[in-house]
């Protein structure tokens, strides 16, 4: 990479500054999240291919995958007719991605690859290779705090390869700067979760929105009872 000169150009390249006229609108680039409320808040009405999305969350189990599964399923539907559809690559997930749940959500398991690397160096290498290869529909990675430089590289790779890149990171990264053009914070509530868009292209941060994230399907009984309870109140 060239030496950073601090010029506007390099700031633009780093993704620190965005330009309003670059508001993404291309349908082919945009990928619906499956949550209309969220789509509305995101530039281009959804996740953007060729961009990194950072998902900050506290601990597994709060809906961090449910937030993504509709988009992964959408990618699988799109690629179904392709001769050589791209991978959905999971790099060092914290637990076993459970095949029955993915299949139920509509993810084509034949396109899923799970990578277990031995070191952080290999993990970053693998993420970078996958993002820039151009043959991954989505790349999912788990990265700890810090990593500012690495994320900038990954963003460059994502732009090059056109894959949708999702980085799962601890909520503690919230105050750290990041080259990812889209950053979301997931916070659990008594039911569902609150999603805050910390950073988005072509717009300011927004107030948190409450999403059930598919909980209504996992726990139908509870979510059907709610209106009745209100009636009683």
């Amino acid at each position: 990479m060239a030496v950073e000169t601090g010029s506007l150009h390099s700031l633009l390249q780093k993704g620190v500054v965005w330009q309003a006229y670059r508001q993404p609108s291309d349908k082919a680039v945009s990928l619906s999240t499956g949550y209309p409320e969220l789509d509305q808040a995101l530039p281009g009405s959804g996740w953007q291919r060729g961009q990194l999305v950072e998902l900050l969350y506290r601990r597994e189990g709060g809906g961090e995958l449910r937030l993504l599964l509709p988009a992964l399923a959408q990618l699988c539907r799109e690629g179904a007719d392709e001769r050589e559809p791209g991978w959905l690559l999971w790099v060092d997930p914290p637990h076993i991605p459970y095949a029955p749940a993915l299949a139920e959500a509509g993810v084509d398991l034949a396109r899923v690859l799970v990578v277990r690397s031995n070191s952080r160096r290999d993990r970053l290498w693998c993420l970078e290779q996958a993002l820039k290869s151009g043959c991954c529909s989505a790349v999912l990675g788990w990265l700890p705090t810090g990593q500012e430089k690495a994320i900038r590289r990954l963003q460059v790779a994502a732009v090059e390869g056109g894959a949708a890149g999702f980085l799962f990171r601890p909520a503690g990264c919230r105050e750290q700067s990041s080259a990812a053009p889209c950053r979301l914070l997931l916070q659990n509530r008594a039911s569902g979760a609150e999603v805050t868009i910390l950073k988005r292209r072509g717009g300011w941060a927004l107030p948190a929105m409450h999403l059930l994230l598919g909980e209504e399907r996992i726990l139908p009984a509870i979510h059907q009872e709610r209106p009745e309870l209100r009636l009683v109140d």
């Binding site: 991605p97 993915l102 799970v114 693998c126």
Partner: peptide, 14 residues
């Protein structure tokens, strides 16, 4: 990926 990380490090899911 398999050459660098090892044959077992990259696995499909079914």
């Amino acid at each position: 990926l398999r050459v660098r990380l090892g044959e077992q490090a990259v696995q499909p899911l079914a």
